[in-house]
Structure formats: structure tokens, C-alpha cells
Nucleic acid binder design. Structure first.
Length: 251
DNA sequence: TGCTTGATTGTCT
DNA sequence: GACAATCAAGCAG
């Protein structure tokens, strides 16, 4: 739990995860992301949450991955670059999904972040989630300049939000703020504009801090990935990882 | 150029 | 549990 007060800025726990952290197979990095803290500084304010559920996609040989068969398109281009950047893609014509690029030696692997436990900016998350979900604008080029720079590591949160998180008994409506890949993108204000951002850079508007990561193996559950029925035998791989008994997990 | 698919979600019954 | 919404990406012709 993040210590905070209504008057003092809330400090994001732990240092930023270095770029080298992501320079490994996605299946290895994914479980170690659980407990880390995703922070987004947007034009409307700062929102952040603990990563509680992820899925690993293992590149060209993985039938479920967008880079399956070595597919290299404008959408998947960022996965062929250095690891530790964001891979944001649109799905079903109305949702965004947020991935972390991983994989050694330019291997196009990625980790889908499926759920967060909200830590700060809950009021802003609620406002965003109350708006209709709509895709906005074209996909920008890889490495495009961040929409907004923010040098600070601090984040403000409301007393009500802190009480809710501290209660460990979130209401259904609050759980649904960030339980699901598209929900968390909407709550944190992540869109195609965040495509290709460096997650290890202090000046990036989208960052991942170490937080509690890595968690002990006993706190991590595994299972098949969601929504990849088309992937044949690959759909059975237990490459979905989540924090055991965490109420903010999506499925 | 046009058709099909899709790493989802919200609403209705 | 079933189904509609909605459109970018990928692919066939």
C-alpha cells in the first residue's frame, strides 16, 4: 500500500525499472511486473496503479501474438525496436490496449497489462470512465515526442480514493475502473498518443516504478491467456499471470 | 478496394 | 449468458 496524505504529494514507490529489465523474454519479465506501479502524467493530471494482471506474448513463434510469423507492420513496428517501450493498439474499433515491449535482441515480444489496482488519481479515473469510450486520432510514429513532460515523481490522490484502496474491499464499480485492458487504458487516459513511449525514462509521461516487484512466487497465479481461441495449441500456454486473490484482477 | 476479423466492454434479458 | 457496438488492421482479389 502506498503511504500518502491528503495534503502532501504521494510518492510513487521505488525507482523506475531500468530498460535492461525488459531486455529478456516476455514470459520471464511478465510475472516480475506484478506489483510494479504504472504511472501516467496526462494533461488532466496524474493517475497510477499497481499492476495485478499481465499476459506474455512470445513473438514470431507465438500464434496468439500480433508479431506471429514475423509480421512487421506500422502497428507492430515498435516491438521490433528496443525493449521497454509502450505498444498501444486499438481493438474492436473502440478500445485501446496497453502493452510493454520486451524480448532480447530485438525479438518482437510484448506483455499485455490486463488489470491494475488503482493507487492515485481515482477521481480522475472515474471521470474518464464515465465518458463513452472512443478511439481518437491516428497512431503516431514510434518514438514520437511525449505529449507532455513531467519531471516529478509525485502524484496527488484524494482522501476518498485512499480510503477506498486502503479498505481492501473495493466496491464493484471501483474495481471495474481498471479491471480489463481497455478499462485501465480509459481510466489512465492511455491512447494511441502513448505509442512508443520509453517506460524507463524519468521524463516520460508513462513510466513503470518497481513498487513491490518482484513478488514471491507464492503470491503469483498462472493460467491460459484470454481471448486467444484462434491460437490453436498456443492458447493453452499458462502465460497469463496475476496476483493471487487480488480483487482487481479482470477475469 | 472491399471484406473479415478481433489480446473488449456494456447492456439487456 | 447473449448480443450489439464500432472501426483499425490485415488480407485477398
Amino acid at each position: 500500500m502506498v503511504e500518502s496524505s491528503a495534503k502532501e504529494p504521494q510518492r510513487i514507490p521505488g525507482p523506475l525499472l531500468p530498460q535492461g529489465f525488459y531486455d529478456r523474454p516476455a514470459v520471464e519479465v511478465a510475472p516480475e511486473l506484478l506489483g510494479a506501479v504504472l504511472v501516467h502524467d496526462g494533461p488532466e493530471g496524474c493517475t497510477c496503479g499497481r499492476i495485478v494482471e499481465v499476459e506474455a506474448y512470445a513473438g514470431p513463434e507465438d500464434r496468439a501474438a500480433h508479431s506471429w510469423g514475423g509480421r512487421r507492420t506500422a502497428r507492430t513496428e515498435v516491438m521490433y525496436g528496443p525493449p521497454g517501450r509502450t505498444y498501444v493498439f486499438a481493438i474492436y474499433g473502440m478500445h485501446w490496449c496497453f502493452n510493454v515491449v520486451a524480448g532480447p535482441g530485438g525479438k518482437p515480444e510484448a506483455i499485455l497489462v490486463r488489470a491494475l489496482e488503482p493507487l492515485c488519481g481515482l477521481e480522475l479515473m472515474r471521470r474518464r470512465r464515465s465518458r463513452p469510450a472512443r478511439l481518437r486520432g491516428p497512431q503516431p510514429e514510434v518514438g514520437a515526442a511525449p505529449a507532455r513532460l513531467n519531471e516529478t515523481f509525485h502524484c496527488h490522490s484524494s482522501p476518498a480514493a485512499e480510503r477506498l484502496v486502503e479498505s481492501r474491499r473495493p466496491e464493484r464499480a471501483s474495481r471495474l475502473l481498471t479491471a480489463g485492458p481497455a478499462r485501465l487504458c480509459q481510466a489512465l487516459g492511455i491512447t494511441g498518443e502513448a505509442y512508443g513511449l520509453p517506460l524507463w525514462e524519468p521524463s516520460s509521461p508513462l513510466r513503470i516504478h518497481r513498487g513491490e516487484a518482484p513478488l514471491p512466487p507464492g503470491r503469483i497465479a498462472t493460467g491460459p491467456r484470454v481471448g486467444v481461441d484462434y491460437a490453436g495449441a498456443w492458447r493453452e500456454r499458462p502465460w497469463r499471470f496475476w496476483i493471487r486473490d487480488n480483487p482487481f484482477v479482470s477475469a
